[in-house]
Amino acid sequence: MRSIAFEAIVQAVERLCIDCAYELPSDVVAAINRAIQRERNSRAKEILNQLLENARIALQDRIPLCQDTGLVVVFVEMGRDALVAPPEDRPNATLIDAIQEGVAAGYDKGLLRKSVVAEPVKDRKNTGTNTPAIVHLSFVSGDEIKITLMAKGGGCENKSAFRVFKPTQSREEIMDWVVDVVARAGADACPPFVVGVGLGGDFEVSCLLAKKALLRNIGQSNAEPFYAEMEQMLLAKVNALGIGPQGLGGDTTALSIQIETAPCHIASLPAAVNIECHSHRHKSIML
């Protein structure tokens, strides 16, 4: 077994939170630059350039890219031969505790917005720490821990959707629905989007797949040619909607469509779409 200090995880998560808020990932910058080359609408081109200018200001002046610094979603791939060593005075502290403490520290020190309420309906009191973060844990071979963090904005998350298709329905019918979900997101969800699509699994797994799909770098297609082709067809259909950056028209409604799939029941074809705004903040670290 390889031992990784609790405090090392806290510090790594703190760093990821701050970096995500201030640095637009290079795959997103590259995708916006490619979109500027293709875009025919002059106002859309100007807005895309303003988004790059916003990223420069965020980095240089240390102002977060967006005031919605997000609900933190963390994917942990835990090597089966890795062990988290708790602090001496807290023998029961876990990996999850370390992640939550890292998020609280990052949002405090990074001057990020605390956007989490403790409960949904009764009084919606802000927790003041931006915790709890949502943590998804999986086990892999090896002795390392990979932590991938997303700062997920609320405006785009609100436009996400789930639906169960009949097993006999076609790829075309699924695509029509995905395009409709994106069309309904429109200007409200800060286009151009990155769109995560989850197909298969069950009720909750399809939604998780849609979110996981967002973690792939833009430009990296699904490994299965059938779904890679579907991603390209969907991107063409979505960009033909003409919604454009900020919903003010143009060729760039989405930067990328990313599909992930899983096996499912013979009776079901669950499908989920997770809408992500252009401020697509994601970053990984290997410990």
Binding site: I47, Q50, L51, E53, N54, A55, I57, A58, D61, I63, P64, L65, C66, Q67, D68, G153, G155, A187, C190, Q246, L248, C277, H278, S279
Partner: peptide, 11 residues
């Protein structure tokens, strides 16, 4: 309407 997702620029 102003620029969604451009919080640094607008600040």
């Amino acid at each position: 309407s102003t620029l969604g997702g451009a919080g640094a620029l607008l600040s």
